[in-house]
Amino acid sequence: MLSVEGLCVSYGLLRAVQRLDLTIAAGEVVSLIGANGAGKSSTLKALMGLAPNREGKVSIAGRTISHIAAAQRVRSGLALSPEGRHVFPDMSVAENLLAGAAGASRADADCRTANVFAMFPKLMSRQSQLAGTMSGGEQQMLAIARALMSSPRVLLLDEPTLGLAPIIVDELAELIETLRAGGLAILLAEQNVEFALAVSNRAYVLDAGVLVKSGNSRALASDPAILAAYLGL
């Protein structure tokens, strides 16, 4: 569903991501793991067209999108739930969701809102609350729900477990499984290696912007050399 060839991201002289290749199939969860500053967020931003200096070929369902702007990438089926949630703080939950349906007709947007509320009943009961006043976990759910409002085929999740209580992390794992079973392709960037390897089918390990290992998540989870060398576990 998503295929990436030779992705490079740089900030001035710093090369944050170097010639990364990756693929994700529909109905597959793939995790991108690595220490702080390994280049996970830079990869996700570049896929969305939001990193300033990027190179490489990105295609979604066979269509090349590397040359188009973020708004068009969203329309062709890519969605990002950014690191740090980035909800619109002075807008209500319902308005945040509506903002996530950019380009859809009002009727479509209402229909998608109903679907999202069915998936996140807590958001429905808070629909007129200002997003900035919600708890971290609620904001995280809202950020994911908002990304789903564009009806994506590929969902990019950046550090969704950051700052969440264990019980909420379990809920998140269930949600990811539900979305995957519905045919979504999910790329999960995570510091929480244990969580990432538990919910994903495959994983890529980044170190200082370079892909050092990839493979089956279960196999990686039982490879102490990898865990120790690149992830400090």
């Binding site: 708004a71 329309r75 950014p82 980035h86 909800v87 002075d90």
Partner: peptide, 12 residues
């Protein structure tokens, strides 16, 4: 309110 998030959700 958040230019980056607005771009990320597909607002031009």
């Amino acid at each position: 309110q958040d230019r980056f998030a607005a771009e990320a959700v597909g607002i031009d």
